[in-house]
Nucleic acid binder design. Structure first.
Lengths: 112, 112
DNA sequence: TTATATGCAAATGATTTGCGTAGTC
DNA sequence: GACTACGCAAATCATTTGCATATAA
């Protein structure tokens, strides 16, 4: 699960019908600052939240915007390549894959 | 230069004072669909446009949001690693670095 | 004159924020 | 009573869109 704030809001609302979307955003922000969860700022999409705070990559379906963990280890040495070739002081990197989830892949088939 | 739509608007306006921001957006969209330019959807930032349509990575300053080309070759084989380990049909990937540009790096020094 | 591009302003959608109140110690 | 978290609604900001007009083929 890599829910957006609104998806989470809909879920939480079943238990806490009076909660507001603003509170969901606020608490997600706090949790990610504490390092309990991870805020995913995926390119060209709304923010999503990941319960696993450890570093890992993601793959996003361009059809339905579903996000899944990418089964590939973090590339720690990637940043080393830049140390002597850029004037920037490197802080980190983000790698994301795009693709089609099985359902959207099937849709695509049908349409062609 | 990796200008945002608004930065480009400010520039173009010097030559075409009557142009509107909407027109800038519309034409940037057309140009990127034609493959003449590249639309950069960097995570956690507004869209930026790159005059070079070929694939390359970028590094973004977390201080001032400046974007520069990352001097590293595209990692074509990256996607291969996923072919047998994900149920997604892989389309592509995006790698972006974060860091501090020289100016913001100096600011940081001063503050500490 | 017919199609296309434009200006302008309003709409959109995700996210953030101000403020007054409710809940907690 | 004081502090914090909350609900609610409005504000924000980048981007998109509708529509009437201007421009061009």
């Amino acid at each position: 699960m890599h829910p957006s704030a609104d998806e989470l809001y809909q879920l939480v609302r079943k238990r806490l019908p009076r909660i507001s979307l603003g509170t969901v955003y606020r608490n997600l922000e706090i949790l990610s600052e504490l390092g309990e969860i991870q805020k995913l700022e995926l390119s060209g999409s709304l923010k999503r939240y990941d319960g696993h705070p450890h570093r890992h990559y993601h793959i996003r379906c361009v059809g339905c915007d579903t996000v899944a963990d990418a089964p590939i280890a973090p590339l720690a040495q990637l940043e080393d390549e830049l140390y002597h070739t850029t004037v920037f002081e490197i802080i980190g990197h983000n790698l994301e894959f795009t693709g089609l989830c099985p359902a959207c892949s099937r849709e695509q088939e049908k349409a062609s």
